[in-house]
Design a protein around this nucleic acid. Structure first.
Lengths: 104, 104
DNA sequence: CAGAATCCAAAAGGATACTG
DNA sequence: CAGTATCCTTTTGGATTCTG
C-alpha cells in the first residue's frame, strides 16, 4: 500500500497534473509549457518535468538545432495515468460545489 | 481547472488517502485509526481528520460516554471519492513495476 | 531556447508534553 | 480516550542570476 504514495507524490504535487493535462492535447516544448501553465517557475517546471520523465510518464526529445528545441510528450504510461486523472477531474467537477458548501 | 488542486491537496497529502482507505471497511474510532495507520502522528491524525470532516468526506460522531468514544466514518461523498481513489490505486498497482523500472 | 545553480520563504509534518 | 499546544525539522516551492 505504500507504492500508492510514491505515485501520489508525483500526481499530488503542485504542478505535475497541470503538465500532464497540458501535454494531453499533444507534445509541447519547454517554453510552450511555461506559457500554458501560468504561475509556474522555471525551477519547478524543470524539476517536475524531470521527475515525470524519470518515471517514464513523459518523453523528452531534444532536436539538435539552433536555437535548441526540446519537446515533451506523454508516453503511453503517462497517457494511461491521464485517463485516471480525468476520472478524478470529472468526479471533482461533479462534486466540487458540494465540497465547497461543506467547507463554508 | 483550479478546483482540481483543491481536492488533490486533500487527496494527495501524506495521510488523507490512508484514512479514507482505512474507513472504507467501516466506521472506526480515533485510536483504531491510529493503530491501523502505522507511523501517523497524533498531530497529523487529528489535523487530517478535521480537514476531511470539514470537507464533508468524513462524519464524526461523539458518544457521550465515559470513557469518551468518537467514531469516524465515510460520508456518501467520501465513499464516492474512495471509488475514484480505488481506480487510481488499481492503476498504480498495475503499473507500479513499470514506473519503478523506469526510475532506476 | 532550455535549462542549471544558489539562496530563501513558506508549508507540511514529526516529537514531546499536557488535558477534559 | 481523544484530543491540544508548542517547538522543531524537513520538504516544497519561489526568486534571482547565470549558461551551453
Amino acid at each position: 500500500m505504500d507504492f500508492i504514495r510514491q505515485v501520489l507524490d508525483r500526481v499530488g504535487d503542485k504542478w505535475s497534473m497541470r503538465i500532464v493535462a497540458a501535454l494531453a492535447s499533444g507534445p509541447m516544448r519547454y517554453t510552450d509549457l511555461q506559457r500554458q501553465i501560468p504561475g509556474i517557475s522555471q525551477r519547478m517546471l524543470t524539476h517536475t518535468l524531470r521527475q515525470l520523465t524519470e518515471d517514464g510518464l513523459l518523453s523528452r526529445t531534444a532536436y539538435a538545432e539552433v536555437p535548441p528545441r526540446v519537446e515533451y510528450a506523454l508516453t503511453p504510461l503517462g497517457g494511461g495515468l491521464y485517463e485516471i486523472v480525468k476520472h478524478m477531474i470529472g468526479w471533482v467537477a461533479d462534486h466540487h460545489d458540494e465540497i465547497r458548501a461543506n467547507r463554508s
